[in-house]
């Protein structure tokens, strides 16, 4: 019974949060609702007994959404609503509903016809952290390593883009030198 109560409670909360995220025109509401929704999703992992994935969901998405907040801070006055350019509302609503229905159908069809078999069923004697590790480092080792390489590439690219003047600290340069540089830029 508790599982059912928790499931419906968190299902309701998650959907409400994501509806707020897409409908509001206030950047702070959208970001906060997105963070809350992402954290509420972890409840489903906990209900299903996948504690490890639940905790990882919390840790990863708090960090990810925190980075979005930083962008929000840089680009908007987050205490004011954003004026949105709205196109044809019927097309947007229709397309998103269609996409949502399609996703549900694609995921639900194999379940309804019972065509899903767990190739690597969870081993009961091990905790779910060990189970995740076992599958990740045997069956899915290649995708795992590929993802690692992709992230490494992204990191190197990020450092190259951001690190052009990294060896020079603006805090340690004195004001007179900064002023001279500024004038040079204006002149040239």
């Amino acid at each position: 019974m508790f599982e059912a109560i928790a499931f419906y409670l968190f299902a309701f909360l998650t959907i409400t949060m994501f509806i707020i995220t897409v409908t509001t025109s206030q950047a702070l509401y959208a970001l906060t609702a997105l963070a809350a929704g992402m954290i509420f999703i972890s409840a489903f992992f906990f209900i299903l007994g996948a504690d490890f994935l639940g905790a990882i969901q919390i840790i990863v998405y708090t960090g990810a959404v925190m980075a979005l907040y930083a962008f929000g801070m840089m680009f908007f006055d987050t205490t004011r609503s954003v004026k949105e350019k709205q196109g044809n509302k019927f097309i947007i609503t229709g397309l998103s509903t269609l996409a949502a229905v399609l996703v549900v159908l694609i995921v639900a069809a194999p379940m309804v016809s019972d065509n899903i078999v767990a190739l690597y069923p969870a081993i009961d004697t091990m905790g779910n952290t060990q189970n995740v590790g076992l599958v990740l480092f045997t069956k899915y080792l290649v995708p795992f390593e590929l993802a690692a390489v992709m992230l490494l590439v992204a990191m190197v690219a990020g450092i190259v883009l951001a690190g052009k003047k990294m060896d020079r600290s603006i805090t340690l340069t004195n004001d007179a030198e900064l002023e001279i540089e500024k004038n040079k830029k204006v002149l040239s």
């Binding site: 702070l28 708090t62 952290t129």
Partner: peptide, 20 residues
């Protein structure tokens, strides 16, 4: 069985308070 991850995660969520 993931106590330490859960604690670190929850404490991290706590920093949303000052930021919001």
């Amino acid at each position: 069985n993931i106590g330490i991850l859960y604690i670190l995660g929850m404490m991290a969520v706590g920093l949303y308070g000052p930021m919001l």
